[in-house]
């Protein structure tokens, strides 16, 4: 009996039929026969995956070699199509941006410093971009249907069977991550931080595939400590430009975003990587807007009332 016969694609080992779409909507037992190694994450990342505490990614861009294994692993595990394959003229980046079917995107920054009219040594900056799984997520707050939720691993996931494709989450993301696929199923998509894999005790696909450990997966607290050590080590070695992006209330997590569960170590200012330095949580604009609106409303209703009461 082949493995396929033993576990047909559309059938859970319990005999339950999978619902259409993403497999993680059914009850997926951590130690189901699908999990080849029980709690595999402990072997690959060094951390056990237990619900109830926040997990995230620390993407150390100084270790990235731009191999795009994370992009491929993500597409493969999540069954995402290869799309818009073309030469774009933007360095080795032929992906262009995160999208509905691209949840990891490696950015290639080429820099040639100019000093005294002479070109200095060029350098590469790579950054494997991904959903930041914000502590206060603009998309989650904007979603009118409750389709976007916070999971038991502290991550932000879109429930595909509830999203109705209103697209309000799209401009609410300060990092341009979440995207609606109008041509496809009509709903919004983004990285799930491999919710299904976490449930099965596995490390997320991109982190597992990363050959240089530029993408590190683990509990948030320990990742932050690790990142702090790394930044200090780099600074001691003379890389004073090393900085963290997404630390609590720090660079990249300002104005209500609080912190990023998927954070980065950058070697230049965030704009160079296409990231905002001081993002703003969109919901903070609601109260001032409504107060001003109702003041204007009262004023205009009064002005209209006076005009209608006029003697003429």
């Amino acid at each position: 009996m082949t493995a396929h016969e033993a576990f047909p694609r559309d059938q859970h080992p319990s005999g339950e039929q999978y619902t259409a779409g993403y497999p993680f909507y059914d009850s997926f037992e951590p130690a189901s026969p699908h999990t080849l190694i029980d709690r595999e994450s402990e072997l690959t990342s060094g951390f056990r995956v237990d619900p109830g505490q926040p997990y995230g990614f620390f993407t150390d861009t100084t270790l990235c070699i731009g191999c795009k294994a994370c992009e491929v692993a993500c597409k493969q595990w999540n069954s995402l199509p290869a799309d818009n394959v073309d030469f774009l003229g933007t360095s080795y980046d032929n992906t262009r941006s995160l999208g509905a079917t691209t949840w990891r995107h490696v950015k290639f920054v080429e820099q040639t410093p100019v000093a005294d009219g002479e070109n200095g040594d060029p350098r590469w900056l790579f950054l494997s971009d991904i959903c930041k799984h914000c502590e206060n997520a603009g998309c989650l707050e904007a979603c009118p249907t409750g389709a976007i939720t916070r999971t038991e691993f502290g991550t932000v996931v879109i429930q595909q069977d509830i999203c109705n494709g209103c697209q309000y989450c799209v401009p609410a993301c300060p990092y341009g991550v979440i995207t609606s696929d109008k041509e496809g199923g009509g709903t919004a998509h983004k990285c799930t931080l491999c919710y299904d894999r976490l449930k099965g005790g596995l490390e997320p696909a991109c982190a597992k595939a990363c050959p240089t450990d530029s993408i590190q997966f683990g509990p948030l607290e320990e990742l932050r400590a690790r990142a702090q050590t790394r930044v200090e080590a780099l600074r001691q070695r003379g890389f004073s430009e090393a900085r963290l992006y997404g630390d609590p209330d720090g660079l990249g997590a300002t104005h209500g975003v609080q912190s990023l569960h998927s954070f980065f170590l950058l070697m230049d200012q965030p704009n160079v990587y296409g990231l905002p330095s001081a993002p703003k949580l969109p919901s903070r604009n609601i109260v001032p807007g409504l107060v001003a609106s109702f003041a204007t409303g009262a004023f205009l209703v009064g002005a209209t009332a006076l005009a209608l009461l006029g003697r003429k």
């Binding site: 941006s97 341009g176 109008k182 230049d268 704009n271």
Partner: peptide, 15 residues
């Protein structure tokens, strides 16, 4: 100001 190849930094809704 530097940017990443002048590409959009946020997404717009396809309304």
């Amino acid at each position: 100001d530097p940017s990443y190849f002048g590409l959009p930094a946020i997404k717009k809704p396809d309304w």
